[in-house]
Design a protein around this nucleic acid. Structure first.
Lengths: 348, 348
DNA sequence: AGCGACATTTGAATCGTTTCAACACGCCGA
DNA sequence: TCGGCGTGTTGAAACGATTCAAATGTCGCT
């Protein structure tokens, strides 16, 4: 790998001059510039970002930690962040925490050693000791939490309007005509899940429906576990709800698996809608009604904020908290069941 | 951010000593080690990888370029690579080329400037001038092509057994009882697509079926375009095939969209199987029969090879070419159509 | 006591950039 | 003719680590 010195020698100029033509920060006369450019091409010279970063103490790199980028939601977030970073000539390093707190800590340490200028964090579902984060902030590394946001820690955050978005889903089910609506949540240790649950409950109350504890099914982020929980509760036709709303993607998948395992059809036997989109190509399904999150935008906005903070060098003032609206994609699964249709028919 | 010097001062030792306790490459006496470790904790010192990389000219970083990590196949590849890298304490930087050759060139340049020690490349679908790659190899940067592999350029490669995997899909359709089978490919400018097509044709010939040019539908990687192509050809019931086999994910999605647009059901009206898994939560579908690629393993093996090459410092000898087997996931979409079932019934 | 062998510890050079102070060189106005 | 100015150009210091040769102890042995 040629160095700037070799370029300088070949072009017959000082290293400083080569640096000036590369960065463009200092004017260089035409003839010298041409000689330098020729030398660069000839040697196939690529400036060493490592050395540059050391000298300038700017890496022009952001880190982004997600739980698992094989979950379709996260790549969209990452690409959004990447796009925003690119507008400022930054790169992003994306890594997976697998929802493990110790792994997340390792990654934070790694990114810090790599001297990323800021970190976008989707916190692990496993409870994160806030000491992991306070160290960063103290060290002057930018931090923006997105999607999942911490409970009481002061940082910039970007996420979806959890409460109203969840409410929107449940309101839709109610509007269609469902009355006995079960809510399936992920771990309520996550603030997002609590807020979504709140939204669901509000929607029920606003419609004058009871908030029945028997219909609040709390699970986790493992579809298999959620499947088991739902199967148990769906087995008895008498106690079965009209509809189910699931507050996130992995639990939604669990619900669908439970339907399949129990031989239930949606919306024929139980209507269904879920927060977040799913990857369900192995299921026999009607199209699923979903509350769609603006994943790309969440990543984009979060990176934008981070970059602005980096540029301004300021993290002292009031944290920014952005909430982006979700949208409801009404498809087939939230329709009326056969039984309900029959009832509607006869009353008409 | 504290530096090694500050740690040394606080601990009352020389910087060299601190370095020795960090790297562990030179023994340090117990009392000094303890003092250094205490200083590190107290200052919350994180070694500067940038400076380390500059000195050692080792970044312990690999780059991986994929067309688009929102396509579900690629995150699995990336995670496989990440896992392999982690066993050697390497990190990976994943970036998206959007199937654009100029963008790919930019990314190659960027990764090179970041001094990654090797690059895993899934080539852009847009034809890549081999000069992009030869420069890398000349510069001594490791390169392994995966998934999509170049036509005549000598590099290590890891991909799926395209020919036999595609054949497996078509053989399955034939075994079920389909006879008029259409093949939908992506761009035949990609070597993979040509090989898969070859596999399909072989399967047809082996079964004594004609290879009918009218049933070879060549598309690209944009589902919308493929949808249009298929709609045109599916419109006339008389010329409609019994079954369709699609040679990759995006084209498969296009086929399914065409089914929906034409009001066709699978397998009721036309049976279907595809190479690669799909994300199709917005479609009303039976479960799709797919040829599943070992995405994670492809990434893992590719990174393994790259790391071995880096470690050995040797790229001179014969390139390694690994082909991993795919597996067939038989689901509902490849079954017999209503018409075929009736025929089978009456003949029984 | 003196000496060599061994085990630590030290300090300086180095990696490839950027950047800043200093320098060179025309050219203009006095 | 000369001082001063502006435009280009240069060379060396610095960034924060690693590493190697040299220095410093320690100890056993004669």
């Amino acid at each position: 790998m040629p160095t700037i010195k070799e370029v300088a020698d070949l072009a017959g100029v000082a290293v400083g001059t080569v640096s000036h033509v590369i960065t463009g920060s200092v004017p260089v006369s035409q003839p010298l510039r041409l000689k330098v450019e020729a030398a660069i091409r000839k040697l196939d010279y690529h400036p060493n970002h490592v050395a540059r970063s050391l000298k300038t103490s700017k890496t022009r790199t952001l880190g982004i930690i997600v739980p698992d980028m094989t979950i379709p939601y996260f790549p969209k977030v990452i690409r959004g962040a990447e796009a925003a970073a690119r507008t400022c000539n930054y790169s992003v390093i994306a890594v997976n925490s697998d929802d493990s707190a110790p792994r997340q800590k390792e990654l934070l340490t790694l990114l810090r050693s790599q001297r990323v200028e800021g970190i976008l964090l989707v916190m692990a579902a496993a409870p994160t000791p806030m000491t992991q984060l306070s160290g960063l902030v103290a060290a002057g590394i930018g931090l923006v939490c997105l999607d999942r946001i911490p409970d009481r820690f002061r940082v910039d955050t970007v996420t979806v309007e959890d409460t109203s978005a969840a409410a929107m889903g449940v309101e839709h089910l109610i509007a269609v005509g469902h009355r006995r609506i079960a809510i399936v949540t992920g771990p309520v240790s996550l603030k997002n899940e609590r807020e979504r649950l709140l939204g669901c409950e509000e929607a029920l109350r606003t419609a004058g429906l009871p908030v029945d504890e028997d219909l609040m099914w709390h699970g986790n982020l493992r579809p298999e576990d959620v499947e088991a929980i739902c199967r148990e509760r769906l087995a008895d036709p008498a106690r079965r709800p009209d509809a189910i709303f699931s507050t996130n993607g992995p639990t939604g998948l669990g619900v669908l698996r439970a339907f399949r395992a129990e031989g239930l059809r949606t919306p024929g036997d139980v209507a269904f809608a879920t927060f977040d989109e799913l990857t369900v190509d192995d299921l026999f399904l009607p199209a699923i009604t979903t509350v769609v999150q603006p994943a790309y935008d969440i990543g984009f906005r979060a990176a934008e904020i981070l970059l602005k903070r980096i540029e301004e060098g300021g993290f002292g003032d009031e944290p920014i908290a952005i909430r982006l609206p979700a949208s409801l994609k009404v498809r087939d699964s939230s329709g009326l069941s056969a039984r309900q249709q029959a009832a509607a028919q006869s009353s008409a």
